[in-house]
Design a protein around this nucleic acid. Structure first.
Lengths: 207, 207
DNA sequence: CTTGACATGTGACACGGTGTCACATATAAT
DNA sequence: ATTATATGTGACACCGTGTCACATGTCAAG
């Protein structure tokens, strides 16, 4: 989390720094990004940076979390639109996510995020790290799921379902960036996989 | 890949370096590991290191690939034992993987590998990077799958199934290390999820 | 042998990045 | 006006990387 000092800064100064950071994190992946570049671009001294953030990661995950929050809102609205049908909502959400690749502002930032997706980034995207407010939003999302569409018996199974579709969704998003899939290819694969797990991987015994 | 120079080295010198590397990569995750520590421990000069490997990553993925190869062999043998039943084989393989946590030699190395699992590591573990021989082994594994257990229609769907169970398996392995799950918890979750996707996530219409 | 060509070994060094700290400056409170 | 407290600043010490000029080894041909 950014330190209080940063949050107390005049908004435009905050934005300058954020813009510079986004620029750097869009140039190279996190581990190659340098604080030196960010502060040079933002025109602030090195010491100040460390008054605002713990380190590079702190700033990075602050940004990533902002993206995640937008995303979460989107999912909520889609889920509402789909009347609680989780699988349908995810199919839409997936399409939305890959469409972000064409958005100049997020493009390369997302690209490097997914090319170097790891547990912490995934967790941030799925929103578990920041703020209690998010915990609320999260369960708010969960509450919206209409479980009658799903082949489950209790809340615990719902959480397993979430993990399953989450793992598959992230896997597919990573594939999109790693192999530079077209939207069509990406959607085809994702839908195929979702369809498979919806109907079940195990052949029913035919007697 | 290590350079030829390394592969031509007397075996004991190779092993010394490998041991020192494993020690360092078990001490801290890849990005914190330092070549300085490895060569100090192995007692070789800095210049030599760069004659053997491109860089830190080169050495790391060489080691990880060795682990992956052992793993692949194991999967093959389990799959054979299970007469091509993929899902059953994976359940066993998962148990085997988490049991490696208790093996002193691999313990921390694996721990840091999974705590920082990313696309490249996952891919290495699932074996796609090194050697043609592995490509063969891979398809060899695929050939062993008896598709009659599965609810699929063609080879393409089989590859989707592999991706699905792969994503879920890795997700669960990461969770094991991130949350320090007991073997029992890990197996419970994994089995629950596998069972769900086997029978299908979508409720059948009851009329 | 000895010479030369080529492979391998070696460690000092330049470079670039990080995080800190002593000092400067602003802001607020009495 | 004075003191306390927060914030700004950039020089600096530290550490790790990858390279390069030079040293040493190997081996085959004369």
């Amino acid at each position: 989390m950014p330190k209080q000092t940063f949050l107390s800064l005049p908004e435009d100064k905050q934005n300058t720094l954020i813009q510079s950071a986004k620029k750097e994190f869009s140039r190279v992946p996190l581990h190659e990004a340098s604080i030196a570049n960010i502060i040079k671009d933002a025109g602030i001294p090195r010491g100040s940076f460390y008054q605002y953030f713990e380190d590079k990661e702190d700033l990075y995950y602050y940004l990533l979390n902002q993206v995640a929050q937008e995303n979460n809102k989107k999912l909520n609205s889609i889920l509402q639109e789909k009347k609680g049908n989780l699988m349908d909502a995810l199919a839409d959400q997936f399409r939305y996510m890959i469409s972000l690749r064409h958005d100049e502002e997020h493009k390369d930032f997302l690209r490097y995020a997914f090319l170097n997706m790891n547990h912490r980034k995934e967790n941030t995207m799925a929103n578990n790290i920041y703020k209690e407010s998010l915990k609320n939003e999260r369960s708010q999302t969960l509450e919206m799921v209409d479980t009658s569409y799903l082949n489950i018996e209790d809340k615990q199974e719902l959480s397993h379902v979430i993990r399953i579709v989450g793992a598959i969704t992230f896997h597919n998003l990573v594939q999109v960036f790693v192999h530079d899939l077209t939207d069509e290819e990406a959607i085809f694969n994702y839908d195929a996989q979702i369809s498979l797990i919806k109907k079940g991987l195990q052949r029913k015994e035919v007697d």
